[in-house]
Amino acid sequence: MKAKLFDYIDRDNFVYNLSGLTKLMAFICLTFSVMFSYDIRYILFVLAVSFCFFRISEITFRQVRTMVIYVAVFLLINFLLTYLFSPQYGTQIYGTTHEIFRFNSRYTVTLEQLLYQVTKILKYASGIPLGMIFLLTTNPSEFAASLNRIGVSYKASYALALTLRYFPDMIRDYQDISLAQQSRGLDLSKKEKLSTRVKNMMNIFVPLIFTTLDRIELISNAMDLRGFGKNKKRTWYAGKPLGRNDYIAMLFSAAILAGSVCVSVFVNGSRFYNPFI
């Protein structure tokens, strides 16, 4: 169910065993390199790399199915809207016009536009598996530890980890409350009018908020009693010391970022790859 979306499952493989810091760095480097470059060849290369890591990390399709569907819908809408609002943008960028097909004078299909839009979709498509790998293979506490290591205050990092940690609990509370309210006759199914359904949802959120507040009071007391916030720094049980693989992975992702910049500067002379001249 939905609770599974952020469930961290412990596995033993190359990607899982990297430290959270490495994964965060690699995620930033690789995403930035595809966001920076508009060279479809380079983007395809990074896409291939990110799919390799996806395979290595042994994430199953079932785990990410919901996310994949949302992303696919988003990309499709994005693709259509881009064309709808700026059908000639590709021609502007690449400076040439290779027309394939024409609806009317504004809406023509050009090779340039096609290249531009495909490049753009591939950019997203290569970034998203990276994000999934990062979210699904990083233990929330270890993630907090990595954030703290790159300079985010440990209180903020811990707050984030706790949110991830309690998210499944909240969903469970929500399901319990929703059942109890349904047994009093609250109808949440599609049979009811939308306005009534929204009103009925409110009857679930109020108790949910109060139960969550109770939970927060309890957890903050428990944390106070065990010395949270005493010192300016803290150590992390879940933090992993950096190993050889971490350095290799970080160097590799830095190289990819550098490659992306180099390709733009030395090969293409701009962020765009122009096969039309």
Partner: peptide, 26 residues
């Protein structure tokens, strides 16, 4: 409700983390 950590080990270590105890001793 007072289970702060994500695993048993981490939860038990919580007070030690706040005392900046190093990983091995912890």
């Amino acid at each position: 409700g007072q289970f702060v950590g994500l695993t048993v080990g981490e939860d038990v270590a919580f007070a030690l983390e706040n005392d900046c105890v190093d990983l091995n001793t912890m």
